[in-house]
Design a binder for these strands. Structure first.
Lengths: 159, 159
DNA sequence: CGAAAATAGATATGGAGCATAACGAATGAA
DNA sequence: TTCATTCGTTATGCTCCATATCTATTTTCG
């Protein structure tokens, strides 16, 4: 069996094979996450929230008095990247940046009533959308998948 | 029960609660994917490949004659964003951009021997790293998780 | 105490990933 | 032939994330 001579450029026909990549867990997860992420973005758009601003709002609501450094650590992002987020939430009257009397460097973040309300509404919408997205998965599959992700997540990078 | 007066800013103590977010599949998946993504980036660094350049190299290797538009669609990115990727792979001598005689607008992408070799080496490294990363998951959990992600992935955004 | 180190938030800046608009060249359809 | 479409490309902008650096404040320690 000798190779057919490849004169110049023969174009590929038929569907594109991703057989090699399909075997990878990470490849599957990226494609899956893209779907979930897109759905989440659409869900949050009516509330004028992005994934990051929503996440920050939830964490501040659930943890009143949180400092920005704590919030950044919880969100796994660097402190500089949080500034614009808290600034936006504060500008929109969703959170307050109270000065801490005992440490005048820090802010104690706190959700306003409007912030708590928006957070609750957005959370309900996300819950509904996610339930619809996962409707095709039975309980066992959902539970095992969550458990699998928890275990992987537990592996700290470079740990 | 009247609220304690919140004079100014009381700071939050103890661990940060992410109870609300933890209930979301998407939240878990993002954190999980971050771990996998970071591991993949470390794995590919010795080969001077990023996730995108690696993915493109694999697809071109597995589908000789692929056009850029087809590759972009397979990678779920827009055509303009692929230009820099193919340009880099071509500059490094890993792929060729052959002109198609029957359509002088298009390129037929093809991996060079060096590209095929690097692709195989990188793929083996990725496989080994991923196996190590997933060592804590039994077969059932791995299989069901893959199946769950396949099903979610099948849901086309806005479909 | 007072000097040095550490910390909180902010600023500036850059890179990577993604999207849209628009272009020239080439092709295909009316 | 004229018009619409397609291929690769350029220009541009947004979001997310990281590092280095700054000021103002603690905190540590000699």
């Amino acid at each position: 069996m000798k190779d057919a001579p490849r004169i110049s450029g023969e174009s590929h026909d038929g569907p594109v094979s991703d057989a090699t990549l399909r075997g990878f867990f990470g490849y599957r997860m990226k494609r899956c996450f893209n779907v979930i992420q897109a759905d989440l973005a659409r869900t949050l758009r009516p509330f004028d929230l992005r994934m990051l601003t929503y996440t920050a709002l939830v964490l501040v609501t659930d943890n009143p008095g949180l400092r920005q450094a704590q919030l950044a650590e919880a969100m796994d992002i660097e402190r500089p990247n949080l500034v614009a987020i808290t600034e936006e939430l504060a500008r929109r009257g969703l959170i307050l940046r109270n000065r801490v009397p005992t440490d005048r460097r820090a802010y104690a973040l706190e959700a306003t009533p409007a912030g708590v309300k928006l957070c609750a509404e957005a959370t309900e919408a996300v819950r509904a959308h996610e339930a619809a997205l996962l409707a095709g998965l039975d309980d066992e599959m959902r539970g095992l998948t969550l458990e699998a992700m928890k275990r992987i997540e537990r592996i700290r990078p470079r740990g």
